[in-house]
Design a binder for these strands. Structure first.
Length: 287
DNA sequence: AACCAGGTTATAA
DNA sequence: TTATAACCTGGT
């Protein structure tokens, strides 16, 4: 599935099927990848700046060795997985055929649990530009400075790095009422009353309950964390877009969250999370 | 001015 | 268990 085409100085070229950078970054799972003028995307994975560009099936990654490719990059972009199999298995009717074709280059990222937790707490009742702005401020204020090709970037601050910040600090970066949620997350992760990095080993339902002990983490945010950072692919985050698109194409009427969850679970089972991504991406452009 | 945006919380039926 | 109002903030 993944072929290493070329290896230059700190630079790799891959050939991959079902991998589109724009789709992967625009399908609602992440907030930090930046598109540069020359069609490059720059992001930070495990504290390291990575620059990627794409032409059709060819992916060029700058600032990356072969070891780093197999240790972090492949995993982060879920490149070991055969997405044509997944698309086949969930595209049993017209809507999913349409949606999975439209977003056929989406990959489900495996992001850092902490970053995902905080990012999606901030996402609640908020809009994307503001979410991105707040996360950026958070990183610039408390993250580590990283210099890459003359530009300055910042890592996402760890729970440890944030352990002494106050509500006032968070208000300054315009978190609003979510400030108290963030403080609760910092406290619970640091004192291990929620063992964040162990949750992926647990049963999905239990892990979900654990996440929801944190203030500001309800069903939707919990499902996002499970799906985007813990590989819990049966999760089906239900936001306003998913509700709209499901009601239009699968119910042809109003439906309750419970009905929708049940439908997703019985129809797609442990592939529901992939279906959610295709539907979300499709809905954002067609509703 | 009123309403909305990747929901959650607190309260009440 | 399910329904409703209030919520920081910035944009329309």
């Amino acid at each position: 599935m993944v072929k290493l085409i070329r290896e230059d100085e700190h630079c790799l070229t891959l050939q991959v099927e079902h991998f589109n950078l724009l789709q992967t970054f625009e399908c609602g799972q992440c907030f930090r990848w930046e598109q540069k003028e020359d069609n490059h995307f720059v992001g930070i994975v495990k504290g390291k700046v990575i620059s990627i560009c794409q032409e059709e099936q060819y992916i060029r990654i700058r600032n990356m060795s072969r070891d780093e490719l197999s240790e972090t990059f492949m995993d982060y972009f879920d490149l070991h997985r055969d997405y044509s199999k997944i698309i086949d298995s969930i595209s049993k009717e017209n809507t999913m055929k349409m949606a999975s074709e439209y977003g056929s280059g989406i990959r489900l990222l495996k992001q850092d649990e902490w970053e995902t937790l905080i990012s999606f707490i901030l996402s609640s009742n908020n809009n994307i530009p503001r979410i991105k702005k707040i996360i950026k401020s958070l990183c610039e204020r408390w993250g580590d400075k990283i210099t890459y090709e003359g530009q300055t970037y910042y890592s996402f601050p760890t729970a440890k790095q944030l352990q002494h910040i106050t509500s006032e600090d968070l208000k300054e970066i315009k978190c609003g009422y979510r400030a108290s949620y963030i403080l609760d997350a910092i406290q619970k992760v640091n004192d291990k009353s929620v063992d964040l990095y162990y949750l992926k080993e647990m049963d999905t339902g239990l892990a979900r309950k654990e996440l929801m002990k944190i203030k500001g983490v309800g069903p939707k945010v919990a499902d996002c964390i499970l799906l985007f950072s813990m590989g819990k692919y049966e999760s089906y985050p239900m936001d306003v877009w998913i509700k709209k698109v499901m009601e239009k194409y699968f119910f042809e009427r109003e439906a309750t969250p419970k009905e929708i969850q049940k439908f997703a679970s019985t129809t797609w089972g442990d592939m529901a999370g992939f279906a959610q991504q295709y539907l979300f991406y499709y809905a954002r452009d067609h509703m």
